[in-house]
Design a protein around this nucleic acid. Structure first.
Length: 547
RNA sequence: GGGCCUGUAGCUCAGCCUGGAAAGAGUAUUAGCCUUCUAAGCUAAGGGUCGCAGGUUCAAAUCCUGCCAGGCCCGCCA
């Protein structure tokens, strides 16, 4: 039952199209109609309008109506809401919250796509965590999702690692060090740059030995990255290697297509350049450079080929990109549109900053994801020990939950200043707080079983009503979050829900309540358990039944 | 110089798209609550020129303009 739509439908008959809002405080009602705008149309005092509407409005879904000055406040029939919400959740269980809007549709999501040059740092992890959550949200809504990871296996960075690791035994953890050292070397000896480019040119001719050298580094790197991300439960369906689009000549196809637009030209140093003047790109000279002077391809050209292929596979597509790629993506989008191709939708996120500035793999001032989750697990294991448990699996659930929640709850537009203490906080508005609420619910349900029919209308305590109201809004929150690619909305909702549940827990004993109320409260706890679990799983966070 | 994002309590953030009632959480500080379903919890107190200045509106944290501060980007990196 959608109360809001029901009230709006009724009001439409009386005064035309209106938009209800949620009052600032629970005690003021469930929905409110401010009568200011009506005052203008009806040429009457808003307070009078509110009073008159109160008299004429009738609906069985409304318990009572209060007039507060120019506001008409609706109190929905709590027993209908309670019955409705509880029945719906108990029926749908792990599907509660899904609208099914994605049924029959496919969604391709590309995320993470970290350069295979080192162990991932927290900044990159933000991409993976957001992408993973968005993918889970779509899956939940019925989309058939396909998660892609694009591997930049032929870039300058790999060439640098190939050169830097000559004669050394390389492993995943040592790559960062090699990369940092090589970059320092490069500053001192600029002629190394030529060696790097030479190696790239050799690669593009298809030289077997060079290919093998690149592949060796890339394989080590990808394997290490996937292992770390896999620990966090982040999985990919398909890995796309950038080199493929070079060696299968797709890039040449793209150049041919772009030639037809008449906007492609060869500049004074022999590069293929796309003229994007007149499209409002905020660049000094609005062009898109596609090849180097020596004819080798640049990243952008290969990316165009990649995007063209993704589009063939699926017309619904999303990519997660850092804010540094905003302008670059505009170029890609324009170039694709010139070829009459749709660009994917894009979600940009800002960087995680350190006290001393931006994280930079090249300079080596990074907090590695691997180190961070290790620390998180260690801390949660410690906390578990204090409570007489020391279960590794649960420690991971909690530690990783803290990491994920702390990143996902913040809007991607915001820079995050990385702070160890804060990121590893387990109290207050954190992942473990939500998990703890879940564990509390499980604990009650393990002690006592609900029996027979539930009469939800006996749930009349203020905290019970508040909890029910919160539970009932879950589907709307998920729908909105999915449509707008906003995992943070779900994270914030879960924080609120956990708070509502803990407040209820404090004042409403379940097991000791009289039978009728006990049964209804058990049902309410069960409902909360489902919603917490469903919500957490959308963020890729596990729900431990004990902690 | 140009473009995009951000600026809300000491600190970390929600609310801004879609304007509406006294601006919300968490944390930190202070004071309470474990013989009662897990205290990773709950209750209470103090703490705010919503960056600044204009404008639109009956009404602005929310919309518009200008300015200030931070982040990101602006041709052979990816």
């Amino acid at each position: 039952m959608d109360f809001k739509t029901e009230i709006e439908k009724q009001l439409k008959k009386e005064v035309g199209e209106v938009n209800l809002e949620i009052p600032p405080d629970f005690s003021l009602g469930d929905f409110a109609l401010p009568c200011f705008s009506l005052a203008k149309i009806l040429k009457k005092n808003p307070n009078d309008i509110a009073r008159e509407l109160k008299e004429t409005f009738k609906s069985k879904y409304i318990e009572r109506i209060e007039v507060k000055g120019p506001y008409l406040n609706f109190f929905v029939n709590k027993s209908i809401l309670a019955e409705d919400t509880v029945n719906s959740i108990l029926k749908l269980k792990e599907r509660y919250g899904s609208s099914g809007i994605g049924k029959g549709q496919k969604m391709l999501i590309e995320h993470t796509s970290i350069n295979p040059n080192a162990s991932p740092h927290m900044g990159r992890a933000r991409n993976a965590l957001i992408g993973d959550a968005v993918a889970r949200m779509h899956k939940f809504q019925g989309y058939k999702t396909e998660v892609h990871y694009y591997i930049n296996d032929i870039g300058k960075q790999i060439a640098m690692l190939v050169l830097g690791s000559k004669g050394k035994k390389v492993n995943f953890d040592g790559l960062l060090d090699i990369y940092v050292k090589f970059n320092k070397e490069l500053e001192k000896k600029p002629h190394l740059e030529k060696e790097v480019l030479g190696l790239l040119a050799k690669l593009e001719t298809g030289d077997k030995k060079t290919k093998a050298e690149f592949k060796k580094i890339v394989d080590i790197c990808i394997k290490g990255q996937i292992e770390i991300l896999g620990r966090l439960g982040i999985k990919y369906d398909i890995f796309d290697y950038e080199s493929k689009y070079l060696f299968n000549k797709d890039t040449e196809e793209i150049l041919k297509k772009l030639e037809k637009t008449k906007l492609l030209f060869i500049d004074e140093v022999g590069r293929n350049v796309l003229d994007l003047d007149g499209y409002g790109l905020p660049m000094k000279t609005p062009v898109f450079v596609l090849t180097r002077g020596d004819g080798t391809s640049l990243y952008g050209l290969r990316d165009l080929a990649y995007n063209a292929e993704k589009l063939k596979k699926c017309k619904n597509s999303l990519i997660i990109l850092g804010e540094d790629q905003k302008l670059y993506f505009q170029q890609i989008k324009l170039a694709l549109e010139l070829m009459k191709l749709d660009a994917p939708k894009v979600l940009h996120y800002s960087f995680i900053l350190l006290q001393e500035g931006k994280m930079s793999t090249r300079e080596g001032n990074v907090v590695l994801l691997g180190d961070f989750i290790k620390e998180a697990k260690k801390k949660s294991l410690n906390e578990l020990k204090k409570r007489g448990r020391a279960d590794e699996k649960t420690a991971e659930m909690i530690g990783y939950g803290a990491v994920k929640y702390s990143i996902l709850k913040v809007s991607p537009d915001k820079n995050v200043l990385f702070n160890w203490d804060q990121a590893l906080d387990f109290e207050g508005d954190t992942g473990p707080y939500i998990q703890y609420s879940y564990a509390r619910a499980c604990s009650i349900l393990a002690k006592e079983k609900r029996k027979g029919k539930v009469d939800a209308s006996v749930l009349i305590d203020a905290k019970e009503k508040q909890l029910i109201s919160k539970l009932s809004s879950f589907p709307e929150v998920v729908l909105d979050a999915t449509r707008q690619f906003r995992p943070q909305s779900i994270a914030n909702y879960l924080g609120d829900l956990a708070k509502c549940f803990n407040e209820f827990y404090q004042v409403c004993p379940v097991i000791k309540a009289e039978p009728k109320i006990k049964n209804a409260r058990l049902a309410l706890v069960e409902c909360t358990k489902y919603v917490l679990k469903n919500g957490l799983s959308l963020l890729g966070i596990d729900s431990p039944s004990k902690m």
